[in-house]
Computed example of a mutant assay.
Amino acid sequence: MSSSRHITLKELAAELGVSTASVSNAFNRPDQLSPRLRERILSEASRLGYSGPDAKARSLRTGRSRIIAVVLAETLTYSLNDAVASELLSGVAEVLDAHGHTLLLLSGRQHISQAPGSASMADGFIVYGLMPSMKILADLPAQRPMIAVDFDIAGRPCVHVENEPASYAIARHALTAPPKRPGIINLRLTEMPCNGRITEAHTLLAADQTITRSRLAGFHRALAEQGIDPAEVPMWNVEENTFEVCAPVIEAILDLPDDQRPDLLLCMSDRIALTVLTLAEQRGLRIPEDLRLTGFDGIAEGQYRAPRLTTVRQDSVEKGRIAARMILGLAPHEDRLLSTELILGDTCP
Rank of each mutant, 00 (worst) to 15 (best):
L12V: 00
A14Q: 13
A14T: 01
L16S: 01
A21H: 11
S24M: 12
F27C: 10
N28T: 01
L33V: 00
L33Q: 04
E39I: 14
I41H: 02
G49L: 06
R66D: 15
I68W: 06
V71H: 00
A73D: 02
A73E: 03
T75E: 06
D82N: 13
D82E: 12
S86P: 13
G91M: 11
G91F: 09
D97I: 03
D97H: 10
H99D: 12
G100A: 09
L103I: 13
S107E: 11
G108V: 08
I112C: 13
S118N: 12
S120C: 11
F125V: 15
I126H: 00
Y128G: 01
L130A: 02
L130P: 08
I136D: 09
A138T: 13
D139V: 15
R144K: 14
D152W: 12
D152V: 15
I153V: 07
G155Y: 06
V161S: 05
N163G: 02
P165W: 14
A166I: 15
L175F: 12
T176R: 15
P178M: 02
P178R: 05
P179E: 06
G183P: 02
I185M: 13
I185C: 10
T190E: 02
C194S: 14
E200F: 08
E200V: 15
A201H: 03
H202V: 08
T203S: 12
L205N: 09
D208I: 15
Q209K: 07
T210S: 15
T212K: 14
S214E: 02
R215W: 11
F219E: 07
L223I: 15
E225H: 15
A231D: 07
E232Q: 05
V233E: 15
M235N: 04
W236V: 02
F243W: 14
F243R: 12
V245L: 08
P248Q: 04
V249P: 11
I250C: 01
A252R: 04
D255V: 03
L264V: 06
L264N: 09
L266T: 06
C267L: 07
C267W: 04
M268P: 03
R271M: 08
A273Q: 07
L274E: 05
L277T: 09
T278H: 00
L279Q: 10
G284I: 00
I287H: 10
I287Q: 09
P288V: 01
E289M: 02
L291Q: 03
D297A: 03
I299V: 07
A300N: 03
Q303T: 14
A306C: 08
R308I: 09
L309N: 03
R313L: 07
Q314M: 10
S316I: 08
E318V: 12
I322V: 08
A324H: 12
L337G: 10
L337A: 04
L342H: 02
G345Y: 08
D346F: 00
D346W: 00
D346N: 05
D346Y: 01
